[in-house]
């Protein structure tokens, strides 16, 4: 890659080539339609994967691009999930508007928290996100009159999507819905990361001192991306509620925050597709391994995680990219 890129000196051409859709991307998105044909009995799992992928995408925006490590991102997922559930429980089961409200409420929570987040770095920041996540879990646990507590939120019932498509038992509507939302928000994230703002986020990740020295408004950038990320996580949570018609405390627990971090690190942070690939691997592995042994299915995930961070520091996608690059430079 380095050899090729340095040969192209025109700055416009080079950046345009970077932002253009690659055929692999097109192939990837076409492949997301395969479950409809190949594994129609697994569409519920496919929709859970799409939702998890969206959640991982939201984390990638703050972690992969701006370098903000979070151990409490489930707070926004859970906030969106409960918001979507409560709206439905209180009598408004229209999915799209429910999802918008879930996004908005998670965005408000994210915006408020971003004022704290933007002030800290490193270990303090990680502990801060962890603390906020635990706080929200206990609030959801304690407020059982509102959330149903450990029993979960009962009485969620969704109206048909667009008034036409009922959420069926096979997950046909659920996967279609989750996939379209994932794709639209992926397009938005892709646009964001290719913008001047996306460049500024990478600058924050790379060197905050240098950002100050070029007069950058880093804190305001962090607040913006944190709010956007929270909104997307809220959409993912809302989707889970709407497609499963239940909300359990699991939407907001520490396990979910940890899982999504593992997923992103497995797939490769900072390249948008990392969270998507990671979600597929993680969810399929969980489905398969828990079929073999429901208690110890984290064991192989742990082995995989250790292997990836040892040998592929930029995740599976980072490893693949390096492989392609070395293959290309050899063939030249």
């Amino acid at each position: 890659m380095a050899v090729m890129s340095s040969a192209v000196t025109n700055p416009h051409q080079f950046l345009q080539a970077q932002n253009r859709w690659h055929w692999i991307e097109v192939a990837f998105w076409l492949a997301t339609l395969l479950p409809f044909v190949l594994t129609p009995s697994y569409l519920s799992l496919a929709s859970q994967i799409a939702i998890t992928a969206l959640f991982a995408l939201s984390l990638d925006l703050i972690l992969g691009y701006a370098g903000i490590v979070s151990l409490g991102h489930a707070a926004f997922f859970g906030f969106g999930a409960y918001t979507a559930g409560l709206i439905s429980k209180w009598g408004w089961g229209e999915p799209l508007s429910g999802l918008l409200i879930a996004a908005f409420s998670a965005a408000v929570l994210g915006y408020l928290m971003s004022f704290i987040i933007a002030r800290f770095r490193h270990l303090t920041l990680i502990m801060m996100t962890l603390g906020l996540g635990l706080l929200l879990f206990e609030v959801a646990n304690k407020a059982s009159w509102l959330t149903g507590g450990a029993d979960g939120l009962q009485g969620v019932h969704m109206w048909p999507l667009l008034g036409m498509f009922r959420f069926d038992l096979y997950g046909y509507t659920a996967y279609t819905y989750a996939l379209i939302v994932l794709f639209l928000l992926f397009l938005l994230s892709r646009r964001l990361t290719n913008s001047p703002f996306g460049l500024a986020l990478r600058g924050i990740r790379e060197n905050l001192t240098r950002m100050r020295a070029i007069g950058a408004t880093s804190r305001s950038h962090i607040r913006t991306v944190y709010t956007i990320s929270a909104a997307i996580a809220g959409v993912a949570g809302g989707l889970l509620t709407q497609t499963t018609e239940t909300v359990s405390l699991g939407v907001v627990d520490f396990q979910r925050s940890a899982d999504v971090l593992v997923i992103l690190v497995l797939g490769g942070a900072g390249r948008l597709y990392g969270g998507l690939i990671g979600a597929i691997i993680f969810m399929v592995a969980r489905d398969q391994f828990s079929g073999i042994n429901p208690q110890y299915w984290y064991f192989p995930i742990g082995v995989l995680l250790i292997a990836v961070v040892m040998f592929l520091p930029n995740g599976i996608l980072g490893g693949l990219a390096r492989l392609v690059a070395s293959w290309r430079s050899r063939s030249q």
Binding site: H12, L15, Q16, N19, R191, L192, N194, S195, P196, F197, G198, L199, A200, A216, T217, S220, H221, T224, I228
Partner: peptide, 11 residues
């Protein structure tokens, strides 16, 4: 002041 813009590509 363009670095706040997230809806337009850098190109």
């Amino acid at each position: 002041g363009d670095a706040k813009t997230w809806w337009r590509p850098i190109t």
